[in-house]
């Protein structure tokens, strides 16, 4: 039987771990490669790097980071942030990324999803969507709206419709990131995750809001997610990947427990 996945996301800026990620062990700041290696050895199932480098000129640094991680970490590696063309996706793949995350660029230009799918394979295209809760309207019947630019710009697109469109354009997986839950540490947006997971046939990764192990249990059972994405929970040192997996396992969620 297929296991549920624990995925950790690392934000990288100019080749360093972003300052917003307040690692307890300060010597780890600035070294995404050793952090990735540490999580890999501690049983993490999949790794996501998000490039938040603002300047386009410095984006090449990310390729070096990916290259370096890919030669030391032998689990699926996904990279996103600022991917706006098939060329960006191809460059990251050559550097060693397995999967490519597209987000805002895909909302502005949905063809990017199908172009990437045709070029690198559907299973390697992850559509990452930032979603906020709204009053249901005729235009937004699900009560959830797509936002872009890190949650700053509402797009007037219904989240459920966008998920289905992304699937039909060839996305192989979805990341559902709740802007409302993000940073609260009060739990994932179960209702949203479940609604989308039940509507699509591709795997769904829940993101945003995790603060304690029970939140992961909830989203992987009640929320029907295939994978749970964590960031600050493990980055701050409050929890470890292996510890979280043990908690999930103890709660009856099927996880990969040997590595």
């Amino acid at each position: 039987m297929l296991s549920k996945r624990l995925i950790a996301c690392l934000d990288v800026r100019n080749g360093n771990l972003a300052k917003s990620v307040k690692f307890v062990d300060t010597k780890d700041i600035g070294d995404p490669v050793s952090k990735a290696r540490e999580y890999y050895l501690d049983g993490l199932d999949e790794l996501v790097f998000y490039d938040i480098t603002a300047s386009h000129e410095k984006r090449g640094i990310m390729l070096d980071v990916v290259e370096s991680v890919a030669s030391q970490v032998f689990i699926p590696l996904s990279v996103g942030g600022g991917v706006s063309s098939v060329q960006d996706a191809t460059d990251l793949r050559l550097a060693g990324a397995e999967k490519i995350n597209v987000n805002s660029s895909a909302v502005r230009n949905p063809d990017l999803i199908s172009q990437c799918a045709a070029s690198i394979g559907e299973q390697n295209v992850v559509l990452s969507m930032d979603v906020q809760r709204v009053e249901p309207t005729a235009q937004l019947p699900s009560g959830y709206e797509i936002v872009i630019n890190g949650g700053r710009k509402p797009m007037g697109i219904d989240a459920l419709e966008w998920a289905l469109r992304g699937e039909s354009l060839g996305a192989g997986e979805l990341v559902i990131n709740s802007i409302d839950a993000d940073g609260t540490r009060e739990g994932y947006e179960i209702n949203l995750t479940r609604m989308i997971s039940e509507a699509v046939r591709i795997p769904v990764i829940a993101s945003g809001g995790a603060g304690e192990p029970q939140h992961l249990v909830d989203v992987l059972t009640e929320g029907r997610a295939d994978a749970a994405l964590v960031a600050s929970m493990v980055h701050f040192g409050d929890y470890t990947c292996s510890g979280l997996k043990q908690d999930l396992h103890n709660a009856g969620v099927r996880m990969r427990m040997a590595w």
Binding site: L2, S3, R5, D45, Q123, G172, R201, P203, D226
Partner: peptide, 13 residues
């Protein structure tokens, strides 16, 4: 089974 995701993606024994 409509609850089964396509393709088979992830870790399995």
């Amino acid at each position: 089974n409509p609850a089964l995701k396509v393709p088979h993606m992830g870790w399995n024994e």
